[in-house]
Design a protein around this nucleic acid. Structure first.
Length: 610
RNA sequence: GACCCGGUAGCUCAGCUGGUAGAGCAACGGACUUUUAAUCCGUAGGUCGCGGGUUCGAGACCCGCCCGGGUCACCA
């Protein structure tokens, strides 16, 4: 019964991500070429400066829609009559309405945002639609940069690139900027006499964070940077809210960010902003996706069938944890969000799917901390006619595949260079295997830990700094000692096998030694990455264990489960011997990328409401 | 749950043993046609997390609360 590892820790910044499908070609020439088809026509319509059409929705409760009324207010404080200004706002600002942001803070931010609304108005007044319908880009930034190759000083081919303005340096009648897209960034060069008066006027309404498209030939600047000599520019989406960009400089080849968006909580809450300004965060989450893809490929290649089992369950089981409870109105009954996939996956084994796996979310109604998110991603897989030794080989190969995928995904990115996924040792099998009892005996310097008296065990526990020794049972004492002396010191991926029966009530007894069970856990850097068993397939034994759980539940144990009669019925039809594994993917990813906080390994972690 | 640290301008932070708040960056205005943390000049921007208390006077001290981070415990 793989209760599997749970989710893990946190990432820091990674570096940019990669490809992204090209936008559907749509608009005509940058800066307002003529469209050629009906859809283009449609786009044009919105280009008409119609104040009614473009009035954005009210921002938050207290913010009035921009428009005439807003302007009056602006004039009231002496700012409304200012001309539209040039230059792009460099950095940023925290986003309005963040946790802890007080009323007055919003007032201030509105002051900043007001300038952007004015620029929006200015664009419309110029006949420019601030929110476009498409852009037929020809190159991603990185591809465009590569396009020029080593060409010395000649002008390169014309390109059309699109993305977010991530840096802006205005110098009077010339401006340098950087455009960021999923592939990286590319420098843009605007000259007043190069793009003409009309477009130059448009630039004055541009801000950092705006999404724009440009057209122009590539060239190399005096300093050698591949740059687009912009001949036409199009506003594709005006950013009405400042993104918290920090300023960046390159020192010894590394990007150093100043005044960065560093509030971890805010970054999690507004992941979109975190991702928008931190390419390395995009790279990290892209790596996570690549890890998941690699795992699917791995399982599929071995004839495992990916299945989906119920998230809403009338009974929860497969692990020991407090569930989330909800209610189905039509059935008028409680339903639980699953705490594990196990019992349904094994029903499928009974049904004849000999190899199944599921990657899905489990939910546990417990605290939130560095390594726990209420919902987390679990991989479980079951293989009929296999035992735990077979599963060990599978887990080893799977981990190597996952590490390889992550390593390849972060290659060349700013994700820390010393993460385990980059460590060849992680990719080298076979992983060491240590037997539970002998390992503990060795660590304690005794011949056989089971021969120690209770008093000796307690003394050893005291030396290990174990708390509440008096109330611990003998097996539990040994478990504490094991965690202290063995688990916590495991650095590279290592299998711990053959757990004492008392510590693994859900696994089959070990052949030849009923005091042990056929179970293994995979540890690395002192953390559990996988948990697996030779699965229990004796329905009579299973019923006894369910009943024991039910008694605990009746006695008030919130983590205990009930007797799952349907599951027993399935098992009574006959379940083949089966090996099962559970791996918490959040935690696996945390391990591979050395991410200390689970919040940073999950795109949208569970947060307290703002 | 216990303990420790923190919450000051949009961002990152400073504010010494109490004397009603500062810097850099951002914003806004001005200058600048090859810059890259662009530079230079100027302007504006803060109920110092919230509520009490001590004091002539509190961002600083005391009490309570909220939020965040960490350590431990719990859990796995």
């Amino acid at each position: 019964m793989p209760a599997g590892a749970e989710p893990g820790e946190e990432p820091r910044d990674g570096d940019e991500a990669a490809e992204e499908p090209a936008l559907p070609a749509r608009s005509g020439e940058a800066g307002g070429g003529e469209g050629e088809d009906g859809r283009e026509q449609a786009g044009r319509v919105v280009r008409q400066p119609d104040p009614q059409l473009r009035v954005p929705a009210v921002h938050d409760g207290e913010r009035p829609p921009h428009g005439a009324e807003d302007h009056r207010r602006a004039e009231g404080d002496g700012r409304g009559d200012r001309p539209v200004h040039r230059g792009v706002s460099q950095a940023a600002g925290r986003l309005e309405g963040g946790i802890g942001v007080t009323e007055d803070a919003r007032e201030d931010l509105n002051f900043v945002m007001k300038a952007r609304r004015e620029k929006l108005d200015a664009l419309v007044a110029q006949g420019v639609a601030p929110f476009a319908y498409g852009f037929d880009r020809t190159h991603l930034a990185a591809d465009a940069v590569a396009l020029l190759g080593d060409a010395p000083d000649a002008e390169g081919p014309e390109v059309r690139v699109a993305g977010r303005l991530v840096a802006w340096r205005a110098h009077g009648k010339t401006t340098f900027a950087h455009l960021g897209d999923p592939s990286g960034r590319i420098q843009l060069y605007f000259r007043k006499d190069g793009i003409g008066e009309a477009q130059w006027a448009m630039l004055e309404a541009f801000d950092l964070g705006d999404i724009v498209g440009v057209r122009g030939p590539l060239f190399r600047t005096r300093t050698g940077e591949v740059t687009v000599r912009v001949e036409a520019v199009e506003m594709l989406a005006k950013a009405l809210r400042p993104l918290p960009f920090g300023k960046e400089e390159v020192v010894d080849g590394k990007v150093v960010r100043h005044s960065a968006f560093s509030d971890g909580e805010m970054r999690s809450r507004q992941r979109y902003a975190d991702l928008a300004v931190h390419p390395e965060v995009r790279a990290l989450f892209r790596a996570r996706s690549m890890m998941t893809r690699a795992i699917r490929t791995f399982m599929d290649a071995r004839d495992f069938l990916e299945v989906e089992t119920p998230v809403l369950q009338p009974l929860y089981g497969g692990a020991l944890a407090k569930p989330f409870v909800t209610h189905h109105n039509a059935l008028d009954m409680p339903l639980y969000l699953r705490i594990a996939d196990e019992l349904y996956l094994k029903r499928l084994i009974v049904g004849g799917f000999d190899r199944v796996y599921e990657i899905g979310h489990d939910f546990r109604n417990e605290g939130i901390d560095r390594t726990h998110n209420p919902e987390f991603t679990m991989l479980e897989f079951y293989q009929a006619y296999a035992d735990y030794t077979d599963m060990m080989e599978l887990v080893e190969a799977l981990l190597i595949a996952a590490a390889t995928a992550v390593r390849e995904a972060i290659a060349g990115s700013d994700v820390a260079a010393d993460v385990p996924a980059r460590d060849p040792a992680v990719l080298a099998g076979p992983f060491p295997r240590v037997e539970w009892l002998p390992a503990l005996s060795t660590a304690l310097g005794v011949a056989d830990v089971t021969a120690m008296t209770d008093a000796e065990l307690r003394r050893a526990a005291e030396r290990a700094g174990v708390h509440g020794i008096g109330s611990l049972s003998r097996p539990k004492l040994m478990d504490e000692l094991f965690q202290f002396h063995v688990e916590s010191k495991i650095e590279r991926p290592t299998f711990v096998v053959d757990y004492p029966k008392e510590l693994s009530p859900l696994a089959k007894p070990k052949r030849g030694n009923p005091a042990l069970t056929e179970r293994f856990e995979l540890f690395a850097r002192g953390r559990e990455l996988a948990n697996a068993f030779s699965e229990l397939n004796d329905p009579i034994d299973q019923r006894a264990r369910f009943e024991a759980q039910a008694r605990l539940k009746a006695a008030g144990d919130e983590e205990a489960t009930s007797v799952d009669e349907d599951y027993l019925r399935a098992m009574e039809y006959g379940m083949p011997p089966t090996g099962g594994v559970g791996i918490g993917l959040d935690r696996l990813f945390m391990y591979l990328t050395d991410t200390p906080h689970i919040r940073d390994a999950i795109l949208f972690p569970t947060m307290r409401p703002e």
